[in-house]
Write a protein that binds this DNA or RNA. Structure first.
Length: 422
RNA sequence: GGAGAGGUGGCAGAGCGGCCGAUUGCACCGGUCUUGAAAACCGGAGAUGGGGCAACUCAUCCCAGGGUUCGAAUCCCUGCCUCUCCGCCA
């Protein structure tokens, strides 16, 4: 969420940004509502003041004047409550528009509406040339009994799966490998809840309600299954004021991730590329409210993601995501796309966003500094260390050999206990 | 799951219908004293929103949301959370 006063003062810039991001918002209406709200606040405050005045006279009043004062107080109470009601309505309408406005955008982020307009910043490694027709991960898994989609569907429906045999070891190995690297870079490890309250989801910018929601919710409760540990890690400091000297804070979280994938039918649904549940190691950071500082941590997170995939020997490219594809909270976003021979194309494996103070404002996460009065909203960042299913696809497809075996990347071998599958 | 107790400022902890945005202690910041420090003493200090160029000023905030009342931290209802005891359990 953007600051109301900021929107009001920079309405042209906000409007231009919405256009770039492909978001339609009625900013005129927002402006009107804000003016109404402010007038109403003044009116309500005055009425409350008057009401307080009358109430404070009553205990000292004599018996003759008391009834009149009580009556006056009663009327003022009515006035205050109608005004408060109107204020609430206007504030709700205001908030609805305000929540629809996306974060401002980094000046260097590519402007564009189409996915293809994201800019490739760099590429690491070369897509391997095969002297045999490479199999995709589904075929490889059938061959080596690495997962069971049919059983997954029987138990939980389409989009669920069982990992089996070496795939299980690879999952654990990928988590271990990622966690070790991330910890080395100063990220505090967390194993997080897989459920979170709706207000935490909303604070992080997720929309748990509505037909197109990506979020599973738990019946008869205000809990949801998390779509990423970004939600739970971001929630750790909900409504907290931290000392600026404690920033930046770097957190890493292991969680299961659950996504309904509503509206995604037909798109890359083969195998375990798009699933309803997977395990992920996520990076999260709170930084001081200074774009230079959060930008630096953003670069740090991308560098860690690259280190992870370089260590696995998987070719990837880094995309600077264009305005139309950023999503609401991101000020700037970099994705890593790994080469997936079975798809014969790049596939998204990580995503790192700088959300500046957009999430913090709704989460209520602020910081205090000795030289500034009041508080400021911190900056938040998040990025994928390893999303197991996607990484697994890349590892299996890139490691396949002419004889049908799969070579396991060197850094994973200690945890898998073998150098190849098959 | 059953039975109790409770949630007040950074922490501890009073207040239990008007004089309470809140006594007090600790921690914190400034000052006096001191060669310096400690101790002692004096003073300051919360958040959010509105108005004002500003000094400042007004409103809101005692877990959250409702209610009673002229008036609520204080009374009532609901929810959330914490603690203690019992039961169950990986």
């Amino acid at each position: 969420m953007l600051d109301l006063q900021y929107i009001y003062d920079n309405i042209d810039a906000v409007a231009a940004n919405c256009t770039n991001r492909g978001v339609t918002v009625d900013l005129d209406q927002l402006r009107k509502l804000r003016d109404q709200r402010n007038a109403l606040i003044a009116e309500t405050d005055a009425a409350r003041h008057a009401s307080k005045d009358v109430s404070s006279q009553i205990p000292k009043a004599d018996a003759a004047t008391k009834p009149a004062l009580v009556e006056q107080g009663r009327q003022l109470r009515e006035t205050v409550s109608t005004l408060e009601e109107r204020q609430k309505e206007i504030e709700a309408a205001l908030r609805e528009i305000q929540s629809a406005i996306p974060n401002m955008t980094h000046p260097d982020a590519p402007v564009g509406r189409l996915e293809s307009e994201s800019k490739t910043v760099r590429t690491w490694g070369e897509p391997r040339q095969f002297d045999f027709p490479p199999l995709d991960h589904v075929a490889l898994c059938e061959k080596h009994q690495l997962f069971d989609l049919e059983a997954g569907a029987r138990v939980a429906g389409h989009g669920f799966y069982f990992l089996k045999n070496e795939a299980v070891l690879l999952e654990l190995a990928l988590i271990q490998y990622a966690v070790q690297i991330v910890r080395k870079h100063g990220f505090t490890l967390h194993s997080t809840p897989d459920l979170a309250r709706m207000d935490v989801l909303e604070g992080t910018g997720y929309q748990p309600r509505g037909n197109e929601t990506q979020i599973y919710s738990i019946a008869n409760s205000d809990l949801c299954l998390v779509a990423t540990a970004e939600i739970t890690l971001g929630g750790t400091l909900k409504d907290q004021i931290v000392n600026i000297s404690d920033l930046p804070m770097r957190l890493a979280g292991i969680s299961h991730c659950f996504r309904t994938e509503a509206g995604a039918h037909g798109k890359a649904t083969r195998g375990i590329y798009r699933v309803h549940q997977f395990t992920k190691v996520e990076l999260f950071a709170f930084t001081a409210p200074d774009v230079a500082l959060s930008d630096a941590v953003h670069q740090e997170i991308v560098a860690i993601e690259e280190e992870i995939f370089q260590g696995l020997g998987i070719p990837y490219r880094v995309l600077d995501i264009c305005t139309g594809d950023l999503g609401g909270p991101a000020y700037r976003k970099y994705d890593l796309e790994a080469w997936m021979p079975g798809r014969n194309e790049w596939g998204e494996v990580t995503s790192a966003s700088n959300c500046t103070d957009f999430q913090a404002r709704r989460l209520g996460t602020r910081c205090k500094s000795p030289d500034k009065k009041g508080t400021q909203f911190v900056h938040t960042l998040n990025g994928t260390a390893v999303a197991v299913t996607r990484a697994l696809i890349a590892v299996l497809e890139n490691g396949q050999q002419a004889d049908g075996s799969i070579v396991i990347p060197e850094p994973l071998r200690p945890w898998v206990g073998q150098a190849r599958i098959g």
